[in-house]
């Protein structure tokens, strides 16, 4: 479960006041809103990369508001993907596992499993510089899911892709999130993405989050 309870964020002149939302375990939630309304900031707040002035962040019944990003159990895919230029695809998939000191055999097995799930087995020895947009997206997703986090946060994951790749990644997201059972919060400004993926739909407008699951046409 992802629950934001009366979150207050102030970053310079930008503020979000009393933001609350709840996504049940295993659901795929989409948060919509105009560019600059604070959607990405909200994801960074959940990750622990931006501070909150008030409120609570609950992940799987656990108040993580004061925890470091590493302790929150989140898989995060930022809008720019932020792949590590000096690491190969294999090293990306192994990154979170090596930090957690998994054994070499366990890492090898998990990398193989992830690569098959994301159809990137042929890319394992490549570096980010030579990857296409869709391939980079798959690698970033694999890196985020490697340590089996219970929560996945996606920041505009389809914004820089062509139509064909976008449809591929939408299918992939649907399949991967169902197979892993990960609770997902996906940020976008695209209605079609939201319609295709969302179990729950939220709208962030003027600093307030509204649940619009039953009437997506209003967005």
């Amino acid at each position: 479960m992802i629950a934001l309870d009366q979150i207050h964020v102030r970053l310079g002149s930008f503020t979000l006041n009393n933001v609350s939302l709840q996504v049940e375990t295993g659901q795929y939630a989409v948060l919509m809103g105009k560019t600059g309304c604070g959607k990405s900031t909200l994801l960074e707040v959940i990750c622990g990369l931006k501070p909150i002035q008030a409120g609570r962040i609950i992940l799987l019944e656990r108040d993580v508001s004061a925890l470091r990003p590493a302790e929150r159990g989140i898989g995060y895919v930022p809008q720019d993907l932020a792949l590590f230029p000096s690491l190969s695809v294999r090293e990306h998939l192994a990154f979170a596992l090596e930090v957690r000191r998994w054994s070499t055999a366990q890492i090898r097995e998990r990398v193989k499993e992830l690569a098959a799930l994301l159809s990137i087995s042929h890319l394992l020895d490549r570096f980010p510089r030579g990857l296409s947009g869709g391939e980079s997206q798959r690698v970033a997703l694999g890196r985020a899911l490697a340590a089996r986090p219970p929560v996945l946060l996606l920041d505009e994951p389809l914004s820089a892709l062509d139509d064909e790749t976008r449809n591929e990644i939408i299918d992939l997201l649907r399949r991967v999130t169902r197979q892993t059972g990960v609770t997902t919060l996906h940020v976008t400004h695209s209605r079609s993405e939201a319609r295709q993926l969302a179990d729950r739909l939220f709208l962030l407008e003027q600093g307030i989050v509204r649940d619009i699951t039953q009437r997506p046409e209003e967005s």
């Binding site: 470091r68 990003p69 930022p78 590590f84």
Partner: peptide
């Protein structure tokens, strides 16, 4: 970009691990 370190921290790194790795 500091984003690389931020992502590394969400993947389980402390700030110093993110710096070194």
């Amino acid at each position: 970009t500091p984003r690389l370190e931020q992502v590394a921290m969400t993947l389980g790194c402390s700030r110093s691990q993110a710096f070194w790795t």
